[in-house]
């Protein structure tokens, strides 16, 4: 029983990190109508950049690593949006072009990592070592640090969306792009910022989860798929759905990984997705997926 509760705590912590990653993905679609299939590669890039700073070429403190890597991720995202996505917006088959271009970009970015760092797995050390006993449960400091970091990012994001001008423009664009443009919101700038924030969140997820999984140049795909499954299960574009689905799947991952091994995680996730879609074809909180 005690072990079970510890697993549950792990699950909730992973859940909140997955939430960050999935929210970035869903935001990018909700605001900019971009299904970003290179998302997993940004995850990888976040992790590798952190590795360069914390292990490979210097031994920076983790807080500094975050402070350096997150802005880089943001500007990387903005650049991708401006160079690759923006020119496609006038095409009649924008959706399709975006999927292909981001797929190509993903392969390119992954293999750039492969060429630079080689195929051997790397690992980030844990932020903190040791553990603490809390009311009979043993919880590692690493888990606590992860939880706090993720929570801070989530709260900052929430405040940003609710309080700042840019955040409010993003929500306006998500609800009604035409209306937003009419009232003078600069659409393309909002799209770019959204893309930047999205890659930033993904990179943050990469750094937070890298100590838990080994890093490989193509490891990001798993996380793209995880983000996809969370987003479909929760309902595309729905923040609430994304939140619930993240925790549900995070907990499932912890339990399945504990009882059967990590290899079984993805099959179980897919099973859960399948069951959710059987009952609610648009996902838990999706309303617009169905059509005549």
């Amino acid at each position: 029983m005690r072990e079970f509760i510890e697993v549950l705590i792990t699950g909730i912590t992973i859940g909140i990190v997955y939430f960050l990653v999935a929210v970035g993905f869903t935001l990018c679609y909700g605001v900019g109508r971009v299904l970003n299939y290179s998302y997993g590669s940004f995850f990888t890039w976040g992790a590798y950049l952190a590795w360069v700073l914390a292990v490979g070429y210097s031994k920076l403190n983790y807080v500094l690593v975050f402070v350096i890597v997150l802005p880089i991720m943001f500007f990387l995202g903005v650049a991708v949006d401006q160079v690759l996505i923006r020119p496609l917006r006038k095409r009649p088959e924008f959706d399709f072009s975006v999927i292909l271009v981001t797929l190509g970009l993903a392969v390119f970015l992954d293999n750039l990592v492969l060429v630079i760092f080689g195929a051997r797995t790397k690992s980030l050390p844990e932020f903190l070592t040791g553990s603490v006993k809390l009311g009979g449960f043993t919880i590692s400091w690493q888990l606590i640090a992860m939880f706090i970091f993720a929570l801070v990012v989530a709260v900052v994001l929430f405040v940003f969306m609710a309080r700042t001008r840019t955040g409010m423009s993003m929500r306006a664009v998500a609800q009604d792009p035409t209306g937003a443009r009419i009232v003078g919101i600069p659409l393309f700038r909002v799209f770019a910022v959204t893309f930047g924030i999205s890659t930033l969140l993904c990179g943050a997820g990469g750094i937070l989860l890298a100590p838990r999984f080994f890093m490989t140049p193509t490891g990001g795909w798993t996380f793209l798929v995880k983000a996809l499954i969370i987003v479909i299960a929760g309902g595309l574009g729905s923040l609430r759905g994304t939140l619930y689905a993240s925790f549900m799947l995070g907990i499932i991952e912890a339990i399945v990984g504990w009882k059967l091994g990590l290899l079984w995680v993805m099959p179980f996730w897919f099973l859960v997705l399948f069951l959710v879609l059987l009952v609610k074809p648009a996902g838990l909180f999706g309303a617009t997926a169905r059509k005549g």
Binding site: L84, L100, V101, L103, G104, L105, A106, V107, F108, L109, D110, N111, L112, L114, V115
Partner: peptide, 9 residues
Amino acid sequence: LLIFGALVV
């Protein structure tokens, strides 16, 4: 693959 990825883009 680097080349092919760039080619798709």
